[in-house]
């Protein structure tokens, strides 16, 4: 896992790293949403943002004083998702202020570099400080 600052301030680039497209992960996700595992659930790629290394980096970008609340999400399906496909994900996380927000744009590509999926998550960051005892 590489985590490096890009040339834009406040932006971190994460990856590329391989994502899970195995039948086991897909069927567990499908079971949890009460949907068939075939075709792959359209929202399954959201789980890629919770891969341990990426989740840790995003948590660090949020910081300990904020609670992230999912505000919006998009998926652009460039190619059909196939179980077992070898895909690599690169995510760019950008911190915004007024209001505090973390925007994550991620692209999954095939090993050839051809894009398969683009997703964007916006997390509103709710301040936790000062609410102790409330």
């Amino acid at each position: 896992m590489r985590a490096e600052r890009s040339h834009r301030p406040g932006e971190i680039v994460l990856g590329p790293f391989e994502v899970a497209t195995g039948a086991g992960e897909i069927s567990a996700f499908a079971a949890a949403i009460g949907a068939p595992a075939n075709p792959i659930p359209a929202t399954f790629p959201i789980a890629w943002l919770s891969a341990p290394a990426l989740k840790a980096a995003l948590r660090e970008a949020v910081g300990p004083d904020f609670l992230p609340v999912h505000e919006s999400q998009s998926f652009d399906y460039v190619r059909p998702l196939v179980p077992g496909a070898a895909l690599r994900l690169t995510a760019v996380a950008r911190r915004e202020s007024a209001p505090e927000r973390l925007v994550v744009e991620a692209e999954a590509t095939e090993l050839s570099g051809a894009p398969a999926l683009i997703m964007r998550a916006a997390l509103r960051l709710v301040p936790l400080a000062g609410e102790e005892g409330a």
Binding site: I33, P41, H70, S72, F75
Partner: peptide
């Protein structure tokens, strides 16, 4: 995202002849 997960199956049940190209939403 648990709510958004309801959409694609509902669309597929309604229009099995159509494929999903983009899905976006605001909570």
């Amino acid at each position: 995202m648990r709510l958004m997960a309801e959409i694609a199956p509902a669309l597929a049940a309604w229009r099995p002849d159509m494929a999903l190209k983009r899905l976006s939403g605001t909570f």
